[in-house]
Simulated scan of single mutants.
Amino acid sequence: MTLRSRILVLALSLLVLAGVATASVLHASDRADRRDRARPGGPRITAGPVALTGAGARMVFRNMAWGPHRDELTSVRAADPSGPRTASGVKCLRFHAAAGTGVCLQAVHGPVQDTYRAVVLDAGLHVRARYDVPGIPSRARVSPSGRFAAWTAFVGGDSYAGTDFSTRAAIVDTRTGRFTPSLETFRVVRNGRPYRAADVNFWGVTFAADDRHFYATLATRGKTYLVRGDLRTRTVTTVRTNVECPSLSPDGTRIAFKKRVAGLPADAPWRLYVLDLATLRETPLAESRSVDDQALWRDDHTLVYSLPGDYGADLYAIPSDGAGGPRRISAAAVSPAFLP
């Protein structure tokens, strides 16, 4: 056999082996999908239209159940969040919506590495605008009027638990298109004085109803602060220390947040609290587990948040006054928005 013939035989053998390996992987993947679709007790999901208005009170969220609709925006009746799901076909890593406007943070799969983008959606989940996101998506919020959208991404590290991370928080005016790619361009006032530092980070934006003010977390020199932002003056002012991932109540009087508590493990350091903005009095909530999420107000009395579950994450609800206790409302779900 000539050298050329040997090379040809070797090349053909490698192609056959590659084909066998690919077929095996696809077969295993198909079996896994069929197994997960048939797993007893899993959510019932069907494809169908999902809208951000006009469909009655709904909860729209990222579906985490394995199968053909994993990661899709999915809708259920708000009164039955563990009930049958309608999957939209639109995939998001993080999501929020209000007043017919949605923001969807997506992965864009490339040949070498993934990139990320933020997509502003209309009430029918059609794309209105796209923006590059500089790292792994983490938080997303839309203002009560639907005019503003915000998102946070990790640009170094991938967890708020440690100290080796950096974030970018962006805000866009969905009406005018004015885009602020980083809140680090805003003027910072700390303890009544202008403040500048190279290590300033922002995350977890939550909007007031006036289309002007917002709250967020500022981190610098090993401390975190709740800040109140002003979109007109492009200023943020510190309010209180040790506040992360704030969420403003519908009535605008309280902030739900996660607080680092001394003595807890370094990888699970948080407990949920509610801060009264008028008195700055904190109320611990009746959740003993560490919650790494930006809790969402379902109404003025109830908070919803995610915790790790069998499919990645489950949603829980808890009273905002510190009474009662947590209850799981939906398995295999994350990033909810409650739509009237």
Rank of each mutant, 00 (worst) to 15 (best):
260 R>A: 01
319 P>C: 07
211 D>P: 06
32 A>N: 07
276 D>P: 12
57 A>T: 15
125 L>N: 13
306 S>M: 04
85 R>G: 15
165 F>K: 13
193 R>S: 14
83 G>P: 14
105 L>T: 01
11 A>Q: 13
284 P>V: 05
267 D>T: 10
22 T>F: 15
151 W>R: 00
277 L>F: 09
293 D>E: 08
242 N>G: 02
43 P>S: 06
324 G>V: 08
98 A>H: 10
151 W>L: 01
215 Y>C: 08
21 A>S: 04
57 A>N: 06
282 E>G: 06
122 D>G: 05
170 A>V: 00
204 G>P: 01
261 V>H: 05
145 S>L: 07
110 G>M: 07
217 T>Q: 08
264 L>F: 11
39 R>I: 01
223 K>C: 05
132 D>T: 13
110 G>C: 07
85 R>Q: 15
77 R>D: 15
42 G>P: 03
19 G>W: 02
76 V>T: 12
327 R>H: 14
29 S>I: 08
146 G>N: 00
212 R>F: 07
39 R>N: 04
326 P>I: 05
39 R>Q: 09
7 I>E: 11
140 A>P: 02
24 S>N: 14
264 L>E: 03
58 R>A: 14
116 Y>C: 03
103 V>F: 06
249 S>E: 01
230 D>H: 05
58 R>I: 12
193 R>G: 13
83 G>C: 06
113 Q>F: 14
168 R>F: 02
128 R>T: 14
48 G>D: 07
279 T>I: 02
285 L>W: 08
260 R>L: 03
42 G>A: 11
152 T>R: 01
140 A>H: 02
132 D>G: 13
325 G>M: 07
83 G>L: 04
273 Y>H: 14
285 L>V: 02
34 R>P: 07
2 T>D: 09
103 V>R: 02
318 I>P: 04
134 P>G: 10
130 R>F: 07
259 K>R: 15
39 R>F: 02
197 A>E: 11
153 A>S: 08
314 D>A: 03
135 G>W: 04
46 T>W: 09
53 T>W: 08
328 R>T: 09
293 D>W: 10
204 G>I: 00
123 A>P: 00
48 G>R: 05
326 P>N: 01
316 Y>G: 03
273 Y>V: 00
